[in-house]
């Protein structure tokens, strides 16, 4: 319902990198979840690049947890990268960072 977040799909080696650009809040979390789930369905290794994400709220964290659960269920790898600045603080404050493999940047993906 909102274009506040856009996604770019990039391929890097075996990784499908989904770059989130903008912000994820309660008004667009559902749309973000749909987009990220669709990307996960098309790969075995999905990295969500959050380096261009200005803001993620509790609604956005719920999306991350849902994606993590889906990855477990589907036996896929799902990691976070580009976790910096405000987004990093929010993930750390909520303990969400401890539930995922987190990389500073997409360049660190092995």
């Amino acid at each position: 319902m909102s274009a506040k977040v856009e996604f770019k799909n990039l391929i890097q080696g075996n990784w499908h990198i989904l770059q989130a650009i903008g912000r994820i809040d309660a008004t667009n979390a559902a749309a973000a979840q749909t987009a990220a789930s669709a990307a996960m369905d098309n790969t075995n290794q999905l990295a969500l690049d959050m380096s261009h994400l200005e803001y993620i709220s509790s609604a956005g964290l719920r999306v991350l947890l849902s994606l993590g659960k889906k990855a477990k269920k589907d036996a896929k790898k799902f990691v976070l990268c580009g976790v910096i600045g405000m987004v990093k603080e929010i993930l750390e404050d909520s303990g969400t960072d401890m539930l995922f493999e987190v990389y500073n940047s997409a360049a660190d993906l092995k």
Binding site: S58, A59, R62, S66, K69, I90, S94, M98, L99, F100
Partner: peptide, 20 residues
């Protein structure tokens, strides 16, 4: 906010908003 140690597949979704 009190971080539970459950694995991601068991982790309850939600509750962060009020903690924030």
């Amino acid at each position: 906010r009190t971080l539970d140690k459950s694995a991601i597949e068991d982790r309850k979704i939600g509750g962060f908003g009020i903690a924030f």
